[in-house]
């Protein structure tokens, strides 16, 4: 608008291209375009295609036809699908709670003045740095029915008579995989929360101490509210990662025994690629979206409520 006005006065003569680039609307479109194109090509398009495939009977090597909700209706009747939904929710809930409890505890410990603080912090990150497949293979050996180091030690100590069937019984297998996931996930939570802890101004603690606050009160009314914004972000990410976990399951149990450790991601893969039912696999993957959106919204908005951050109680 400004250039147009200048032109009318005739004091400055400009080329049309320059004029165009000076136009705020045009410029903003040009600047946004690369990001928008990236998002559309690499996020919106694949996501949209995935959702679309879920409404078709596409098979590997054969284009599909639109079949409406047939995949979903068929999944609704499939006991394995519901078992897998249950597994996924259980896996995500238990693993996330444990990761947060232990991760927060670890972050608080590391926030104290410890000797060799930097080295300790680096070591904590190790489980997260090791490629998942490697740690999965390590856990596969740890849980092995015949060669488990855990069983071996417990037996040598005289605590058990025969090797623990870590992966052979449904609930054992679920617990074992959750433990592996927690082990992998703690560092991420701990380091992020540690970063959050370090942004809390010491003066707040000093003020609280002057007011005679107990350590618990300081944690409850200073640390927690100040940590809430980063906590909510980390929680959101952690839920997303856990819900969509694939590698650990695939390397350790392939979803067995009797489908007790199959997650939605592994089932979607199993049916879509080795099974060739791309449409159904896409439908299972799409069925994850509502859960993910719900989990994200509740952890994000739930924890970001202002009241909490200001240290007020919920009620």
């Amino acid at each position: 608008m400004a250039t147009a006005a200048l032109n009318r006065t005739g004091s400055i003569v400009r080329k049309p291209l320059v004029d165009l680039l000076d136009n705020r609307n045009v410029l903003s479109v040009i600047c946004m375009a690369p990001a928008a194109i990236l998002l559309l090509t690499f996020l919106t398009y694949p996501l949209g295609l995935g959702v679309w495939l879920g409404f078709t009977d596409t098979k590997i090597g054969r284009p599909g036809f639109f079949i409406g909700l047939e995949n979903y209706i068929s999944l609704f009747d499939d006991s394995v699908f519901w078992l897998v939904v249950f597994n996924t929710l259980l896996y995500t809930t238990v693993a996330t709670v444990l990761k947060f409890g232990l991760g927060l505890y670890l972050a608080l410990l590391l926030n104290n003045h410890l000797p060799f603080k930097a080295i300790l912090r680096a070591i904590i990150l190790l489980p997260w740095i090791v490629p998942t497949v490697l740690s999965a293979i390590a856990f596969w050996w740890i849980y092995d029915a015949q060669f488990s180091i855990l069983s071996y030690m417990l037996q040598k100590m005289g605590l058990i008579d025969q090797y623990i069937d870590f992966l052979g019984k449904p609930n054992n297998a679920r617990a074992s995989l959750i433990a592996a996931n927690v082990w992998r996930g703690i560092p991420f939570v701990a380091i992020c929360l540690l970063a959050g802890l370090q942004t809390i101004s010491p003066s707040l603690y000093e003020a609280a101490a002057l007011d005679g606050a107990t350590p618990w009160q300081r944690f409850r009314h200073v640390t927690m509210p100040m940590l809430m914004p980063i906590l909510s972000i980390v929680l959101t990410f952690s839920v997303l990662f856990t819900f969509t976990d694939f590698q650990l399951i695939y390397a350790i149990t392939r979803g067995g025994p009797v489908n007790s450790t199959h997650l939605m991601a592994t089932l979607a893969f199993q049916r879509a690629i080795p099974g060739g039912q791309l449409g159904e696999g896409a439908a299972i993957a799409t069925a994850m979206i509502p859960f993910l959106v719900a989990a994200t919204l509740s952890s994000y908005f739930g924890l970001q409520r202002r009241k909490w951050q200001q240290g007020e109680s919920d009620g």
Partner: peptide
């Protein structure tokens, strides 16, 4: 069966057999 076969993947029996179990 030897205990644990419900968790066996393809390499498991090779390992157990060669271990003499």
């Amino acid at each position: 069966f030897i205990p644990g076969t419900l968790s066996w993947l393809d390499p498991s029996n090779n390992k157990a057999f060669l271990d003499g179990q």
